[in-house]
Design a protein around this nucleic acid. Sequence first.
DNA 1: CCATTAAACTCGAACTTCGAGCATAATCCT
DNA 2: AGGATTATGCTCGAAGTTCGAGTTTAATGG
Lengths: 383, 383
Amino acid sequence: MASPRWYGALAVLVEMRRSPGVTRAAVAQRLGLSSGSATDITARLRELALLTETPAPAEGRGRPTTVLSPHPDGPVVLAVDLRHEDWRCAFAGLDGNPVVLDAAPHPSREPEQAVAAVREAVRRAHARLGDRVRAVGVAVAATVQDGRVVQASTLGWGPVDLTPLGLPGVPLRIDNDATLAGVAEARAGAGAGAGTALHVTVEVGVGGTLVVDGRPVRGATGAGGEFGHLPLGDRTLRCPCGALGCWDLTVDGRALARHLGEPPPADPRTYATTVLSRTDAAALAAVARAAASLGSGIAGLANALDPQVVTLGGLADPLRAAASEAFTAAFTDGLMTFRRAKPPALRAAALGDDAALHGAAATALDAVLTEESLSTWARLRAV
Amino acid sequence: MASPRWYGALAVLVEMRRSPGVTRAAVAQRLGLSSGSATDITARLRELALLTETPAPAEGRGRPTTVLSPHPDGPVVLAVDLRHEDWRCAFAGLDGNPVVLDAAPHPSREPEQAVAAVREAVRRAHARLGDRVRAVGVAVAATVQDGRVVQASTLGWGPVDLTPLGLPGVPLRIDNDATLAGVAEARAGAGAGAGTALHVTVEVGVGGTLVVDGRPVRGATGAGGEFGHLPLGDRTLRCPCGALGCWDLTVDGRALARHLGEPPPADPRTYATTVLSRTDAAALAAVARAAASLGSGIAGLANALDPQVVTLGGLADPLRAAASEAFTAAFTDGLMTFRRAKPPALRAAALGDDAALHGAAATALDAVLTEESLSTWARLRAV
DNA sequence: CCATTAAACTCGAACTTCGAGCATAATCCT
DNA sequence: AGGATTATGCTCGAAGTTCGAGTTTAATGG
């Protein structure tokens, strides 16, 4: 017996997800489906609780079409964001909009306790949503290699295994929070519509990711996007990461402290925000130096990676705004001549604090919109 | 009438191309095809002159299977390599092995004459191979943006339009030669088998590309991979590209000349090879400095992009070999600590001068192994 | 020479998609 | 108000693909 192949159905679901609020007619046209196929496919997907159709507002003449949206009893994913001081657990349907179910500050500095608390939240969500949960995505403020935390200076953690956050029989995707924020910005945020988008974020250090056609360039072990550890900085400085001359150290709060002749701050992130709010000459000069370093580094990355858009997360945009002449001069000066006619657009990130959570939901959904996962879903429903 | 969708057929052709000499049984197993489907698909593809089956050498018991290989009358692509001093034009079947048909030195420094000569060669090849030609791939020693040469310091060209090298009704793919060399190395050369491979080549300046799952990360305009123009170098030096502090200038022949207190060489490439062959202390010191810059830059790229393998083209490997301690020390020192346990493998490029031509054939073939192109092929044969 | 083995071949059933023809629900126009 | 126009949805038979079970085939090993 020939089993379902999901080719057309998957394409429709992906299209519905990519452009929220599309009509059935528009999807059929974009995918080149005949109206017969569209009827058939949507009927099958309705049957499987994968989408619902609601009458679309009339647009001129002709028989009105319907808007495709995720089914209220359809598959969902869980999205977790493990941040510096707290965590959040949300669920999202096929539209990828996370709805927070649970959130709390970390009980202590111990990774075990934080992981245990989050695991409980995941269990609760699973108990509530049952088999509708088809994947789990985790964003963590740490360097992640092959799904394991290997370095987490912000959280103050050593290597931590996050696989306990998974659910049996369901894919688990763990990524760096800046990577996932970049994915969210590239798909639905400030980089929407760009085939190649570069996300650069400044918190403690510099992180980000290159996103090509909605997928992050993760690298061989999933630890790509550590742009802060390119040696664009001062070769006499040793970075806590172990390398020499990291860009990192010339952009963030540690750089500002150095320029101001102050000792390294315990919390470079909040230190940086206070310096950014100052208006004295010394602070302005320090900020200008950091902004220039940010600008020239981004120009170099633009030369090397050729993004259409650069989205600026965390303190990157405030830094640019606070010293816009210094930033722009360094950026322009760092671009290859032929790129200056049409440089990549620089835009402030649009999703703010929710970006990583959105990204976690998005990568989890990527695991759901596959032939295999949909087959499982159909089998579960048939019972 | 339902038209052919090519799903399984395409998968078989891609598999045959990826692993030359595979047997039909192995392909069926890898793709999860039933033996019935395998029979059907191969019969269809044989019928369409897309593959041939030859008896496979017996492997133990059981009915012997067949080896899949491109059909002698099947589709081909043309591959062109436009280099510093000469050009080559080749054709390749679905196995992607280029067979050179024509080659000559450039008649002059004028781009028009070179393009005209190559266009003639393409016309001759087309006249000879007829409708079997389904795509044209061009590798050029220049920065390419949206299929146009925008900067060609090596060739001494200004902006040049290479679209005259195309054939009517057939896809034309134009890329930088280092990008295409990287593709070839990642698919069939020193980076074979790696999901994420970084190619770095030193000629005049530094070029390369990141290759993910066999596809180069081209960027928004196709001008990605200009790693030489990351500001990893000396911030007091202005690069001819227009940017400041390019890595470029601290690695190649111009760097060696500067370190030796000599004037900028007219031909940095041959200048570098002569310095590399010298054994005096001054030359060795200059080479060591360039090798260290190469090593630390590659480490930074490894931090940022997380490749599984780095393939070294052009003078990159000779440089490393000539000053291996300096190179290795700088490389290791530039890696983030957690990467040192399992750093990316550094390998000399395996395809030498033919890499770009292989890559041009490969990207052209990518355009052939699509549903649309195969439909056209089937229609042409039906007449 | 026969048992064993692995793979190819055959064939009907299941599934998807297409395209043509028809039905339907809106707007536009008189 | 009612018919013309238009875009879309629905129906249905034909064509194409894949599966799976059963059968056949061509090798090895004893």
